[in-house]
Simulated scan of single mutants.
Amino acid sequence: MTDEGGRESLEALRSDVSAMGKDTVAQLEKALDSLETGDETLAREVIEGDERLNETYLALESQCVDLFGQQEAFAGDLRFITASFKIITDLERIGDLATNLSEYALAAKHELIPDDAVDEIGRDALSMVERSLAAYEASDSQQSREVVASDDQIDELCRTASETVTRDLIEREAESDGPWMVEQLLDDVTRVLLTIRDIERVGDHAVNIAARTYYMVESDPKFIY
Rank of each mutant, 00 (worst) to 15 (best):
L53K: 04
P114H: 14
S34E: 12
G21M: 08
S62I: 09
P114K: 13
R44Y: 03
A117Q: 15
A83M: 06
N100I: 09
N100R: 14
A19I: 05
E40C: 01
E72T: 08
E103R: 15
Y57E: 15
L42P: 02
D66L: 13
A108V: 01
F80L: 13
A26G: 14
L78P: 11
R44L: 05
A107C: 01
E51H: 02
I47K: 08
I94T: 11
Y57P: 12
F80W: 06
A31Q: 06
L35W: 03
D39Q: 07
L58D: 08
I81L: 07
E45A: 08
L78C: 07
Q27S: 15
R79Q: 12
A43G: 07
A117N: 15
L53E: 11
A26H: 12
L78T: 04
L78N: 11
D33E: 08
F85Y: 15
G38K: 04
F68P: 13
I87G: 12
E45M: 05
R79L: 07
L32D: 05
Q27W: 10
S84V: 09
D116L: 06
L28M: 14
S62P: 01
D96I: 02
D50S: 05
E92S: 01
E120N: 09
S84W: 00
E36F: 04
L35I: 03
A117V: 14
K30M: 10
A108W: 03
P114W: 02
V65C: 04
E51L: 06
R52D: 14
G95L: 02
S62Y: 00
E120H: 04
L97G: 13
A59D: 15
G76P: 02
Q70V: 04
A117T: 15
I94C: 13
H110G: 07
A59I: 08
T99R: 09
L58W: 01
D50C: 02
S84M: 08
T24Q: 11
R79G: 12
L78S: 05
D39I: 02
A83N: 01
C64D: 04
T41N: 09
L78I: 15
G95S: 06
D90F: 01
D115I: 13
A83W: 02
E92V: 05
D96N: 11
L78D: 00
G95H: 07
R79D: 11
I113H: 04
I94R: 06
I88T: 15
T37S: 04
C64Y: 00
V46Q: 08
T82G: 13
C64G: 09
D39M: 01
A26N: 14
A75D: 10
R44P: 02
G69Q: 12
G21S: 03
K30Y: 00
A26I: 09
I87M: 12
D77W: 01
V25T: 14
V25F: 10
M20G: 09
T24A: 10
L60Q: 11
T41H: 10
